[in-house]
Every structure is written in structure tokens, then in C-alpha cells.
Write a protein that binds this DNA or RNA. Structure first.
Length: 427
RNA sequence: GGAGAGGUGGCAGAGUGGUCGAAUGCGCGGGUUUGCUAAACCCGUGAGCUCGUAAGGGUUCCGCAGGUUCAAAUCCUGUCCUCUCCGCCA
């Protein structure tokens, strides 16, 4: 959420931001509701004051008659109080609903545009695009997986439906190697490694900006509980500080979470979805940072730098994209994606995403920090970034590693975690 | 899954219907004393919202949500969490 006062003091800027982000939010309605709510709140507080005063007098009444009279007075106030409380609550709920639809402000440098067509490429990775000889047709990862018995899509579909799969043989080792590679790197960079729950309470989902139920939801919910399968460890890691006030000295908190991720991909039918590219379940190593407001921009650069380093190490060509305002989603102030070159699609495809959510996510989560010796508390800033989304990284490694002799060479960076350096025909 | 116990301020820990935003201790901040340090002593010390230029005021908050009552940390219901014991189990 955006700060209530900020909205009221920057109505025009907030409206323009909604327009740039292609989000429909009724800012005027919010202002009206806030005004009305505050007036009612004042009334309520006045009445409360009265009620408290009467209640206090009763304790000191000398005679039973006096007491009864005061009680009657109290009862009358209470009746009014109940009605007024309901009014205030209703207004609050309405106001909150509108406030939640207002997206975060965008970074002044974020490209302005309605959709991903306005995303701008800001740089390319150092690994060159593959140069195969004339006439060599690279296989895509589905064909490679078939050839070397690495992934069982049919089995996955039989057991759990389309979009699920079994990894087999070297693909299993590759998943584990990618995880270890990423986690080891992050630990060296001061991140605390965590394996998180794969489910979370729905209020944690909402706090991090995910909508657990509804027609458009990306989220699988678990029947008869208020739990959902997580779409990313961002949810569980973000929830870690929900309703907490942390000492500023303990910040920044750099966390790296390993989890499974589940996505319904509702409405994604027909979109590029062959093979591992768009699946209902995958594993992911995610970075998450809680920090002071003045630190968030530099941490955002750090997260992007780590993502680049990982794909540099894996020898995968990529481009870095500065996400346009219309494609940012609700919580991000700024977002960079890495799009890896995928020979099978003959195109770049998103493999990581890192967002600076400033205090937007923290406000919903109610994650605060306190500076020793200072009055009050403030909202932390939160950032998240993909270290490795295994499914897509695996796809990239397989497709990029293929040689003209048909074998698939593993990147050096993974060799410490693998018992083979090449995938080829089985004996 | 069964049986109990409990969730109070940064921490520990009192408080079982009104005088409780909450004793006391520790911690923390400031001060006095002191050659320095320590000790001792004194004063102060939660957060949210809101009114006010400010000083300051009001209101809400004792896990969370409801209920009873003129009045709830305190009584009732539900719920979440923690701990102990038993059972089951990778």
C-alpha cells in the first residue's frame, strides 16, 4: 500500500502514476472516503470520551440511586456508540479496499509505457549468442530431454495434469547443482540461506501482494484451510517480518530462500508454454532483502549484479530489461528482468526478475524498524530477486550447452556440484 | 490425534471487573556524585491513529476475533501460537 497521507498530499502525482502503470484506481473516491472516515472517527472518539467519563463516575457513586441513573446514561451512550463504530468500520474497510488498488509510485527512470512493449533493454551480458555451423539445427530442451531421457512430461501429466513433469537422470542432478551453486554464491555474499515452507497463510500472501482466491488468481489454495501453495519464496520470506518491529541495527537482512513454487497460470493458455518454460511447479532460489529506505536503491543494483553474475557463470547470453511502468505490477517501484537467450524459441525469455518494492509491501505486511533513541517506527524497504528459477535455468543450460555432436556440455561453474561434465548417449 | 498449562511493554514478571497503559526488576536514555572507571542515587523511557504551528490534548492497543457489562488485561466463546505429557509417524 501507499501511505495514506502521501496519497492525500500528492493526489495528482498518484493519479498520473496510476495512468502510467495502466492501473484503474479511484483516487478521488479514496480521498472522499478518507475525509468521511476521519469525520466519523472524530465523532466516535468524542463519544468514547463521554462514555469513559460516565463509566468512571459509576465506580465512585455513593448511593444506589445515583448509580442506576448513571448506568442508564451509560447504556444510552453505548447504543449510539455501537452504531457509530459500525459506520467507522465500514468506511475503513471501503477505504482500505480502494487504497489497496493504488499501485506503488514508479522510479523516475522507469520507462513509461502501458505494457511490456515499452520495456527497454539496458544492457547485454558478456556471453555471445551461440555460433553453430551453417546447417546445424539446435534442438530445443524438450527434444533434448526426450533424446537423453531427462524429463517425463507425459508421466507428469498423468499424475498431476498438464504443466507438471518428472525430472529424471542428469536433469535431477542439474537441478540440485543449480541450487547448490546459487546458494553457495549467495552465502559468500552474506545472505542467510533458508529453506522455506512451500505453503503460507492467505494473509501473508495478501501482505506480499498476492491474491489467493478469485478468477484471475495464480495461486493454488488448499481446500478447507486458509493456506495456499506459494508462488515464490518471496511470500514466505516477506512474511517473516509481518507485524514485527525490528531494531534498525539488525538491518539489512539478506535472505536467500529455497522453495518450490506453484502457479496455476490461469489465463496463460496459448502463451509460449512448450516444455519447461511455463509450468505449474518449479524450484527456485530467491533473494530477499529487508533494509533501511536509504539502502534500497543500492541493494537493488546488488541483486541485479548477482543475477547477472550467475548467468555469466553459466555462460548464458542475456539481455537486461528495465521494466516499463505498465508492466511493473502493484508493489514494484522499479523492476529489472534478465532475459536469457533460448535457442529453442529463437528468442529471449525471462529467467529472473528483481524488484525494489520500497515500503509498499512493508506497509501491507506491517514490517517496521525502530531506531534506538528515536521516537516511533518506520516501514522497512523490501526487495526481491530471482537467483535461479530452476526450470528456466535448466532449459537454458540444456539448450545452450548442446554441441554439434549432439552432446550437452555442462558449464564449468556447475562442475563442482556434478558427477559428469557432459550429457550424451547412454551406454 | 488425546490430556494439561500458558500467551501482558525491549526482556523478565505482577496484576482475576472500575483508582490499570498497566506494579516491580533488568535493560535503555539523561543527570548528580567521582581524579578516571565502576558503584550509588535521581529523573525519564511502548506503539498506532487523530487534533494542534507548537507546547500539549484525545483515542485505540495486554496473541487475534467476537461476546457479556455502564465499565474487561481481568468473565464467556472461537481462533492462532508456545510449552509439557501420551499416542502415532518420516
Amino acid at each position: 500500500m501507499l501511505d495514506r497521507k502521501f496519497i492525500l498530499e500528492n493526489i495528482e502525482a498518484v493519479k498520473l502514476n496510476c495512468k502510467n502503470r495502466n492501473v484503474v484506481a479511484d483516487v478521488d473516491r479514496f480521498v472522499e472516503l478518507d475525509q468521511a472516515r476521519r469525520e466519523k472517527q472524530q465523532e466516535l472518539e468524542a463519544l468514547n470520551r463521554e462514555s469513559n467519563a460516565v463509566a468512571k463516575q459509576i465506580g465512585k457513586c455513593a448511593t444506589p440511586e445515583e448509580r442506576e441513573a448513571k448506568k442508564e446514561e451509560g447504556r444510552a451512550i453505548r447504543e449510539k456508540l455501537v452504531a457509530l463504530e459500525k459506520e467507522v468500520k465500514d468506511l475503513e474497510a471501503q477505504e482500505d479496499l480502494v487504497q489497496r488498488t493504488i499501485p506503488n509510485m514508479a522510479h523516475p527512470d522507469s520507462p513509461i509505457g502501458n505494457d511490456d512493449g515499452s520495456n527497454t533493454v539496458v544492457e547485454y551480458g558478456p556471453t555471445p549468442l551461440p555460433k553453430w555451423s551453417e546447417g546445424f539445427k539446435p534442438l530445443d530442451h524438450v527434444e533434448l530431454a526426450e533424446k537423453y531421457d531427462l524429463i517425463d512430461f507425459e508421466g507428469g501429466a498423468r499424475v498431476a495434469g498438464a504443466g507438471f513433469y518428472f525430472l529424471k537422470n542428469e536433469a535431477v542432478m542439474l537441478e540440485l547443482a543449480l541450487e547448490q551453486f546459487a546458494v553457495n554464491k549467495l552465502v559468500k555474499k552474506g545472505f542467510t540461506p533458508m529453506i522455506t515452507p512451500d505453503v503460507a497463510r492467505n494473509d501473508v500472501l495478501q501482505g506480499t501482494g498476492y491474491i489467493p482466491r478469485g478468477a484471475e488468481t495464480q495461486i493454488y489454495s488448499i481446500d478447507k484451510t486458509d493456506l495456499s501453495l506459494i508462488a515464490t519464496a518471496e511470500i514466505t520470506l516477506g512474511g517473516l517480518l509481518a507485524n514485527e518491529t525490528i531494531d534498525s541495527e539488525k538491518l539489512p537482512l539478506k535472505l536467500c530462500g529455497v522453495s518450490h513454487c506453484f502457479r496455476t497460470e490461469a489465463g496463460a493458455a496459448g502463451r509460449a508454454s512448450r516444455g519447461l518454460y511455463r509450468v505449474h511447479q518449479f524450484s527456485k532460489v530467491e533473494m530477499f532483502v529487508f533494509c533501511l529506505p536509504e539502502q534500497s536503491e543500492s541493494f537493488h543494483a546488488e541483486l541485479l549484479g548477482i543475477e547477472r553474475e550467475i548467468f555469466d557463470d553459466l555462460k548464458i547470453p542475456y539481455q537486461v530489461v528495465d521494466t516499463a511502468t505498465g508492466d511493473l505490477g502493484g508493489p514494484a517501484y522499479r523492476k529489472f528482468d534478465i532475459e536469457a537467450w533460448m535457442p529453442g524459441r529463437n528468442a529471449y525469455g525471462e529467467v529472473t526478475s528483481t524488484s525494489n518494492c520500497t515500503d509498499y509491501q512493508a506497509r501491507r505486511l506491517n514490517a517496521r524498524y525502530k531506531v534506538k533513541g528515536e521516537k516511533g517506527s518506520h516501514f522497512v524497504h523490501t526487495l526481491n530477486g530471482t537467483a535461479v528459477a530452476i526450470s528456466r535455468a535448466l532449459l537454458s543450460v540444456l539448450e545452450m550447452g548442446q554441441q554439434e555432436d549432439g552432446t550437452i556440455v555442462m558449464p564449468d561453474a556447475l562442475l563442482p556440484y556434478l558427477s559428469f561434465d557432459r550429457i550424451g548417449p547412454k551406454n
